[in-house]
């Protein structure tokens, strides 16, 4: 029997969207901080620790951009991405 495609279907893409958004925001803010001569790593760590948007330049609208994603979501993206890469590197080493 053919599948019905005339009804609204709900897809669970929220987690992926948040992940993509966090990544996009981090990269844009990183670029803006770099362009203004700040040390992006220092500034982003300062923001994540304190929650103070003063760490983020207003250049390229970066300050309001970073407020679009919660700090815990940014941290999840950073830690998740690091762990994923470390796990992958570990597997590659084991294969070799």
């Amino acid at each position: 029997m053919e599948e019905q495609h005339d009804k609204t279907v709900m897809f669970r893409v929220e987690a992926e969207e948040t992940e993509n958004k966090a990544r996009k925001v981090l990269l844009s803010v990183y670029q803006a901080l770099k362009e203004k001569g700040y040390n992006p790593l220092n500034q982003l760590v300062g923001y994540l620790l304190s929650g103070d948007p003063a760490y983020i330049t207003n250049h390229r609208n970066a300050r309001s951009l970073i407020r679009q994603v919660e700090r815990d979501e940014l941290l999840e993206e950073l830690v998740g991405s690091y762990l994923q890469r470390t796990e992958q590197e570990g597997r590659e080493e084991a294969d070799n």
Partner: peptide, 10 residues
């Protein structure tokens, strides 16, 4: 305080 740290770090 954060603003001063930003300037000094820059």
């Amino acid at each position: 305080i954060v603003d001063l740290a930003n300037f000094l770090n820059a």
